[in-house]
């Protein structure tokens, strides 16, 4: 009986879109423009911490931030997660790691991917280096991924 009811359930594909246009502003805009030029910039707080990626306001104090600092293109993995089966929208189409990466000169960590090939190559504290996308466009995807730094 239940089978019969289910078989008659109507269904239809529904495509949902939220086609908003956003402006990125003076801080995020500068970071993204830096990526286009293969440069990674953070912002320094009054307390001296360098936030990467930069934000317009200090998350601790709410003070507006505007002092930009270029940081390194390599850094340290502070935590990671191994994706054995990437989802269709993930940045890499082969097994990869998500990682929080504290770039040299930064006090906070950037979320991105590490193309390590195998989970056994991943460890907290390992050093990774940015791999730029062939052609950059001023977006987070200009960083294709990170890769383990040759030791």
């Amino acid at each position: 009986m239940t089978e019969a009811i289910n078989a008659e359930t109507l269904s239809a594909t529904h495509i949902l879109e939220y086609p908003y246009t956003r402006s990125v502003g003076p801080v995020i805009g500068r970071f993204l423009a830096g990526l286009r030029d293969r440069r990674i910039e953070g912002v320094r707080t009054a307390g001296g911490r360098v936030l990467v990626p930069p934000v317009e306001y200090d998350p601790r104090t709410g003070e507006p931030l505007s002092e930009f600092v270029e940081v390194g293109q390599a850094g340290v993995v502070s935590t990671w997660a191994w994706v054995a089966a990437p989802r269709r929208n993930h940045p890499l189409d082969r097994p990869f790691a998500w990682a929080l990466i504290r770039l040299d000169g930064a006090d906070t960590a950037l979320l991105h991917t590490v193309d390590a090939g195998d989970e056994s190559k991943m460890a907290t504290g390992m050093r990774v280096r940015v791999r730029w996308r062939e052609s950059t466009a001023g977006e987070i995807h200009d960083i294709a991924c990170f890769e383990p730094e040759a030791s």
Binding site: P53, T79, A81, V83, R87, T113
Partner: peptide, 25 residues
């Protein structure tokens, strides 16, 4: 956030996994 995070499509399980490892270690 639509600039730094959402374009990478980190799903909730992946983000939770980052947190779980941070806790375990």
């Amino acid at each position: 956030d639509p600039y730094y995070l959402a374009p990478l499509w980190p799903d909730p399980v992946s983000l939770a996994a980052l947190q779980a490892r941070a806790l375990l270690e």
